[in-house]
Design a protein around this nucleic acid. Structure first.
Lengths: 393, 393
DNA sequence: CTCATTTGTCAAGGTAATGGACAAATCGTG
DNA sequence: CACGATTTGTCCATTACCTTGACAAATGAG
């Protein structure tokens, strides 16, 4: 009923001090208490108290001593990485990638398994098995896991976490995957669109470091985009921000047939690409890999197919640029990350938009979403543990 | 050098309490000290002290007493609106609108003058004259002004405030309007794109209240869009977010001729509309107003011109929707706010995009940017006066 | 070994917030 | 009109946190 501004137990002032100490330690690596005092402006006394509490609770640990300078040697402290472990899972149509990471974002264990094609409830079981495999691999225990971040294809409701449309994975629209997994393992689960996670991955440790406005464009079987705007993930009102499948580019958007897949996806998805290749005179039944091989050999129909895809993608990036004004567009996905395609896009872009954004190929390739999940997990653990909430009247 | 976490003079704890009190008073109107205590969770004693300090500094003032309920009557306090005044200026190609508002966002004085066509430095002089006219009108003094928010057309550099392209106003690209005005009057000046301000206006007190994701689309002589994403203004990397003039819609984006105005603006600006009207057989030399009059009379060429503009705008909104997933699109500008056009857009939209956003006509019409400037000014004054900064190591 | 230098602890003092007691002021009711 | 119930606002003692200054501990340089 009444708003509580000071925390339930720990008073607000000590919370803020603790927060400042943690942030200083995280930003400056192994560091002595005296140094923390200088950087935070708090007194040595206070720092000693806060550090003692944090060490008792297992968050900080002494890691070494200073030397080489005059004066008494100082004990240096560091975040105890093992104090918080999290799992990141990237659920794909054919494969599941999963990893355990610690509080500092170090990868402790990582593995990949084929997706259980039965989908639905069987996926929950598979996740649990995979997590226990990861624990065995890393020598950790399920008890020390604090959080699971799950990346899936499809549009997610920002509020409930319900998956609206995931064409490649059967039986996930009927169940609440997030809730089921969370209740089974008794751990909080964050669910997020996989392309959004890929964008987060690039922001965390890829090309997007220190870039406040960029987009991750994925082209593969389907199309999608993750947006970082003002330094944060942009989900939109219904979680459908970045659903570029429906861009009115590459076809007639008023054609009711385009509603199933979306105009843009119909024009540049892998189906469209091979169809176009065949249309230009390429070999019947060719896959996208065949197409790029043919391009390598200089086959004209392959060149034409890729050029057209690049032209349409450049138009899409122009539309995105006119809306979001990103500094950078990162290309990913089995098609989008191909250097030949990206090179062609770079050629087309300045011809259809003034002041085009920089174009880069994903730094993490198909691991971007997995990495992004870890980034979110680490940020979330930090917020959870050390965040300061001022309340909202 | 050293990071100061606690404020220079006022300790952090008192700052937070003060902040909580201010927010509670702002949110709950006239309110007694006991009530503040209940809502914030702080003790009555603390509230009394904080309120006494705030009253001494002129921020709060007692406004009345409670009655009608059992128990001792309470003195109710309110923000002293006159403690902070700000100016909002909307610089247009033909007119300048300006207003003074107080800390609560009440409009104290408002006026409109024709823009000095000589532009450049003369605008600074005109702003100063207008502000002193406003002061005379409101009976206030220049000394109590804390902030000026200036809205202009064109793309602004988010860092420097430099105006990059403002076709309607001569001589503003060569000078730093923000800096000049700020130095002349010795008041901080915030400069912002006018369509962004219009979006802020709708967010503050228009259709965008409590809507975290929406876009304000302006169609008139030119085209533009202001974006509220995640509840905040989206400027993009170079301040060009929402520059929908360059959307690759309504023409061939690879046509080098489209670079001057942008493909979309070339297709739906007022020039394009009248040209299209004439092309469909309308009267030579007709203005946009004539066109809408003709539509009113059921003239087929006018109907066709408006239908085509609506069709293209629906496509643009589809593209914006695929990127941003707004809950709402607010239409503004001399053309965009026309009900006939909006009605047509509403008809076209479901045919080219699934799950289309709500479409509304601007709540403030051509005053939206002026109102938005006030909203920003009020928010900024609040942050300035009562914001809590935790520092950043 | 001695001195300068830096680290870390101890003790004392100050500020802000809490909680309880209590006076002040008002409404409702007999 | 008096009295109890109720709410407001102040006073006082106590607690929690942070700071200052003094001082012991530990180390490199000469």
């Amino acid at each position: 009923m009444a708003m509580i501004v000071s925390g339930e137990q720990t008073p607000i002032a000590r919370k803020i001090s603790t927060h400042a100490v943690i942030r200083t330690v995280m930003a400056n690596g192994p560091i002595s208490r005296a140094d923390i005092a200088k950087r935070t402006g708090l007194s040595k006394q206070t720092i000693s108290e806060v550090v003692r509490d944090l060490e008792q609770d297992g968050w900080l640990k002494p890691t070494g001593r200073t030397d080489g300078r005059p004066g008494r040697t100082a004990i240096t402290y560091e975040l105890d990485a093992a104090a918080g472990l999290a799992v990141s899972i990237d659920l794909g149509g054919t494969k599941i990638a999963a990893a355990i990471c610690d509080l500092l974002g170090n990868i402790v264990a990582e593995l990949k398994v084929p997706t259980d094609r039965r989908g639905g409830i069987h996926l929950v079981e598979q996740f649990c098995r995979t997590i226990s495999d990861l624990n065995a691999l890393a020598g950790t225990s399920s008890d020390s896991l604090r959080l699971i971040v799950l990346g899936t294809p499809g549009v997610l409701d920002p509020a409930t976490g319900h998956i609206h449309a995931a064409p490649n994975i059967p039986g996930v629209e009927a169940i609440n995957l997030r809730q089921l997994l969370s209740e089974t393992l008794d751990i909080p689960v964050i669910i997020e669109n996989d392309v959004n996670l890929a964008a987060e991955g690039e922001r965390w440790r890829g090309h997007g470091i220190d870039v406040d406005n960029f987009a991750f464009v994925a082209l593969g079987t389907g199309t999608g985009m993750g947006i970082i705007a003002n330094g944060a993930l942009l989900r939109g009102a219904r979680g459908a921000a970045g659903e570029i499948s429906y861009l009115p580019i590459g076809g007639d958007p008023f054609d009711p047939g385009g509603f199933n897949l979306g105009t843009f996806e119909t024009a540049v998805g892998s189906m469209a690409m091979t169809r176009r290749y065949v249309g230009f005179g390429g070999r019947q039944g060719a896959t996208v890999a065949d197409l790029f091989n043919a391009f390598e050999c200089g086959e004209l129909s392959a060149v034409a197919a890729i050029e057209e895809t690049a032209r349409l993608t450049a138009l899409a990036i122009a539309a995105i640029g006119a809306t979001l004004d990103p500094e950078l567009v990162i290309m990913g996905g089995s098609i989008g990350a191909r250097p030949e395609l990206v090179e062609a896009i770079r050629r087309y872009l300045p011809r259809c938009t003034p002041d085009p954004p920089r174009i880069e190929i994903s730094h993490f390739g198909n691991r971007a979403a997995l990495i992004g999940g870890m980034g979110i997990a680490v940020d979330h653990m930090h917020d959870d543990l050390f965040g300061v909430d001022l309340g909202e009247p």
